[in-house]
Every structure is written in structure tokens, then in C-alpha cells.
Simulated scan of single mutants.
Amino acid sequence: MAARIFIAGLALFLIATVVVAEQSPLQDFCVADRSNAVQVNGFACKDPKMVGADDFFFSGLHLAGNTSNPVGSKVTPVTAAQLPGLNTLGVALTYAVGAINPPHTHPRATELLTVIEGSLEVGFVTSNPDNRFISKVLSKGDVFVFPKGLIHFQRNAGRMNAIAISAFHSQNPVQSRLATLFSGRCPILQPTFLPKHSKWITI
């Protein structure tokens, strides 16, 4: 009887392990076929014989976006929808311009941000044990990580343009604006938080 219980428990453990394990791609690449109407977890694969260098290339992160909106920022994603070669590889980038990237979250991805020029104030709020606000001002060459799913922000901390690169371990990190959840814990919601003449760019 004990042996049967052990075997059943082991079987359940192995099944659970297989279910939660991240799956590796079954081929070298699966370039997104954006014209295919088939719905899959990502995009359907383009015929490998029709794949070329342009499928793995994106140009445009050097271009400033239109920041004439209430928060003064514009986010340009670089996911499989814009760079077909990213499909199934589990990575993405974002590019934005403006004074502030308001509080948001990436439920599917950790974000790794590297400052290239200028300075950014960044921060996030923990969920446990005490909903702490963790923040730091970053300068050129600094790296900061935002844990998966936590509400976070970036804003220009100086008087010159700031440039940064953000990478995600998901091809669809999904951003949600959740400023109301910050309540009074985050100074980003205070009227005096935004400098009048600041801009920042984040990739």
C-alpha cells in the first residue's frame, strides 16, 4: 500500500514538473508569419525557406516618438509583432520617449534596464511582506532589475535626455497602467514630481 502511494505521489510530482517547466523551441527559429490567421501561443511560423535577414532585424529605436500626451511619453514596443524573428524566443524590448513612464506592470516578464545616457529615477513596490517602495536614481552605465509582475516606473531625473535599454524575458510582456494601486506610497503621483523640462528615452 505504501509503495502504491509513493508511486502515485512520484507520478503526480513528475506530471507537475512537466507542466510548469518552460518549454524549449523545437526548431532553430519560428519567424512570425503575421499574415497567417492561425491563432497559436505567439504567431504561426513562416516557411523557413522564405526567411531572410530582415526577419531578424529592426530599425527605429533611434527615432523619438510623439510625446504630446498627458504623461509626455510614447512607448514603442519591439516584440514579435515588430521583429518577426523574436517569435517563440521569449524576449522583447521597449523604446519610449518622454518625461515619465507611469506606473505599470509586466505580468509575464522580469525587466532589466540599462541606462545609456542621462539619469533615471526608477522604482517598484513590493507585494510582501510590507508593500515597500524601493527606488534609486540611475546614471550612465547603471543597471536595474524590476521583478516580474511588480508595479514599477521610470522618470527622467535630470535636465537632459535620458536613454536606456530595457529587455524582457517574454515576447509579450503586456503592460498595464496601474497608477491607482500606488496610493500615497509613491511620490510619482505627487503634482510636483514631474520636472517641467525633462525628457527621457527608454528602450
Rank of each mutant, 00 (worst) to 15 (best):
R4M: 11
G9H: 04
L10M: 12
L12E: 05
L12C: 09
L12W: 03
V18L: 12
V19C: 03
S24M: 10
L26K: 15
C30E: 05
R34A: 08
S35V: 02
S35G: 08
Q39E: 14
Q39T: 12
G42I: 06
M50C: 06
M50T: 14
V51I: 09
G52H: 10
D54K: 15
D55T: 02
D55M: 05
F58I: 04
G60M: 04
A64D: 15
G65E: 11
N69Y: 03
V75T: 13
V78G: 01
A81W: 05
N87I: 06
T88N: 04
A96P: 07
A99Y: 05
A99I: 00
P102T: 09
H104K: 02
H106A: 01
A109K: 02
T110D: 09
T114H: 02
I116H: 10
I116V: 15
E117T: 14
G118Q: 03
S119D: 11
S127C: 02
S127N: 11
S127E: 13
P129V: 07
N131D: 15
F133M: 07
L138Y: 01
D142Q: 05
R155S: 15
N156W: 01
R159K: 15
A167N: 01
F168L: 04
F168H: 07
Q171D: 15
R185G: 02
W200A: 14
T202H: 12
